[in-house]
Design a protein around this nucleic acid. Structure first.
Lengths: 248, 248
DNA sequence: GAGTGGTCTAGACCACGGC
DNA sequence: CCGTGGTCTAGACCACTCT
């Protein structure tokens, strides 16, 4: 039983992927200039409008740069961004991006009723049954992330077995057992001491650093209805988040 | 002598601003649905393509949500983001967004030659003269940010007087005296202890928190040539960065 | 002047949601 | 069924850069 996120491939999307492939294939050759928009649109058999939509998306991500009167170029500085904070990715992928091998274990899995704060964050009635789950994530053999999540129990039809929890992330379980995709989230950042983290969690951890980066996030489904609240603590000696920003 | 960032207003830009105004004006009335694309484009006297380009930009920022077959809606969750980390804004504006009154003082202003690390980061020769400047920024009466910046001295024709430094940010001085606009930057995040921060800075600070968020950034001009390197330390009890992220 | 990206349009057709 | 947003096109004209 696998429910995959269904994303139709528009022409623009597939063009964008072709351009990304083109860039990756020519990375070694040192080719930093793309063909002109006219040439590219003819070569791809599409209108210039569609090509420009694809290029515009890549430009807003920072992957390419366009210079009026000169051409379109690969932006090598933006490509140096590894652990991109502005992308919504799994904890495991974050560790992979940091160049490490990810693994995880479940610290905690239980039911809890929503207190006032949680009820407001998740837009549910106070007392509504929530699932509380805590993961410890390792980069190689070192603990890099502690993540705790809360979401309404009713989203899950049946509570999966421990094996399932051990093999999948919260988001995968919400997708497969709750048919709920987290499409966007709002994140708050704080720097906290290891001691503050352990007081919040209520137990000791194997995080080595004395200071950690705390990300508090509310995840929403496609209708911007809150579905999950998470608190994650990162050892920034191991996970260094990056961002590439463009002035508007 | 004021050199303003020259940004031509395209039709799409002005349409986008009109939509933002529309949203702000109707925020109080509780109107969360925008007119249909056909109606809007007719009312504004523009083609639907141009309107959709403007709406698409607002959607990628999270300000609006479009539902196929239903309409376009204001995204209230995204609007809750206050101190948006994915926007390139001045330290003073960051403090304003956090709901505080900003002020700043210069801690340090001197010349320094580039060491190996700095030479690599700024893509200059080792030994090249740099300007080193350190600001302390206050939220009300509390120290909230310490920021240190380095940039090649040759960018500035003449070194401005102390008065100018006290009245402007690094970016304003680079723009007005160096005719250099910082158009994009790459940022790295770390959580560090107050002690580590003070060791890096070489002096004590008035930051109250025991842990701070460190942002290390390289700023680039419109040709993605590095022009400034900065290390900034934030008291996240006062400045809590936010992000709204959309899955791709 | 030739080539590049930047902007805008009119119009067609499709897919989804609610009535 | 109708109205909504989603996608794509051909073509025009402009502004910038280089030679």
């Amino acid at each position: 039983m696998n429910i995959e996120p269904v994303r139709k491939n528009s022409l623009t999307d597939s063009v964008r992927h072709q351009i990304v492939d083109y860039i990756k294939n020519n990375e070694k050759n040192g080719i930093r200039k793309l063909p002109s928009e006219n040439d590219l649109s003819k070569a791809l058999g599409i209108s210039r409008v569609t090509l420009r939509r694809a290029l515009g998306q890549l430009e807003s991500e920072g992957m390419i740069m366009r210079k009026h009167g000169q051409g379109t170029f690969v932006n090598e500085e933006a490509l140096k961004v590894k652990v991109n904070l502005s992308e919504m990715i799994d904890f495991s992928d974050i560790i992979r991006r940091a160049g490490q091998k990810p693994s995880h274990e479940i610290n905690l899995l239980c039911e809890k009723s929503a207190d006032a704060d949680m009820a407001q964050l998740l837009d549910v009635e106070q007392g509504e049954p929530l699932v509380e789950v805590e993961y410890a994530l390792y980069a190689g053999k070192v603990q890099a992330i502690i993540a705790r999540g809360y979401f309404p129990k009713r989203i899950l039809g049946d509570i999966p077995s421990d094996e399932v929890w051990n093999a999948h992330s919260c988001f995968e379980i919400l997708a497969q057992y709750g048919r709920t995709l987290v499409e966007c989230d709002r994140v708050k950042l704080q720097a906290v001491s290891r001691q503050e983290m352990e007081e919040y969690l209520g137990h000791e951890t194997k995080i080595m650093n004395q200071t950690v980066l705390q990300l508090s996030s509310v995840g929403f489904d496609q209708n911007v209805v809150p579905v999950i609240y998470g608190e994650a603590f990162f050892d920034t000696n191991i996970i260094q988040f990056d961002l590439y920003r463009i002035k508007k």
